[in-house]
């Protein structure tokens, strides 16, 4: 992302920068200080608190979103860097109801406290879009940046496998 970052050419009177980005398909314009992360922008300015904050340093994956279809830790992206880009949050994965992946998370017993789950779901969705039939090692590798202290890891792997199987049957 850094390579595409735009240095703000002007700030408004409060030192805020206007950013226009597409979130879950709708164009949104927010005014944020330049140091505001995409994570905080999504939660506080766009009003989508489904994306969670934990470590704020790119180590836990709780804040995972898709940026132009690619999974990123939104705590490591500045809001201003997202100018003109497409962001998909957990809220935007489906228009209504749960996705097959979210259903399988539930079916597998992968959801305990739930705090890491939005990030897990987004990371797993990204994996399945880029590798529709991952084996167990690939699943573990792809999700290794998403911590779950309730440690539903094995359940999450099962959920991803079940979703892949469901999608391949379609």
């Amino acid at each position: 992302m850094t390579s595409t970052a735009r240095v703000p050419d002007h700030l408004d009177d409060d030192g805020l920068q206007t950013v226009t980005l597409t979130v879950n398909g709708s164009e949104r314009t927010v005014a944020v200080p330049t140091h505001r992360t995409l994570l905080d922008g999504l939660r506080d300015e766009v009003g989508l608190p489904g994306t969670k904050s934990c470590c704020a340093e790119g180590e836990c994956g709780a804040c995972t979103v898709l940026l132009d279809g690619k999974s990123v830790n939104s705590c490591l992206v500045l809001c201003v860097e997202a100018e003109g880009h497409q962001v998909t949050t957990v809220e935007g994965l489906s228009d209504d109801g749960l996705t097959d992946l979210q259903e399988e998370f539930l079916n597998a017993g992968a959801v305990q406290c739930g705090f890491c789950i939005p990030g897990q779901v987004v990371s797993a969705e990204y994996l399945l879009r880029t590798n529709p039939e991952p084996d167990e090692v690939q699943i573990r590798e792809a999700l290794s940046g998403n911590l779950c202290r309730c440690a539903g890891y094995q359940r999450i792997v099962r959920a991803v496998q079940a979703t892949a199987a469901r999608r391949s049957e379609r």
């Binding site: 904050s53 809220e91 489906s94 998370f105 739930g114």
Partner: peptide
């Protein structure tokens, strides 16, 4: 029975509200 988690849907969809939310 392995009844699915109460409130689990909100926990997977991002609708669950934790204190910071």
């Amino acid at each position: 029975r392995p009844v699915l988690r109460y409130g689990g849907g909100d926990r997977t969809s991002g609708a669950q509200r934790f204190v910071a939310d």
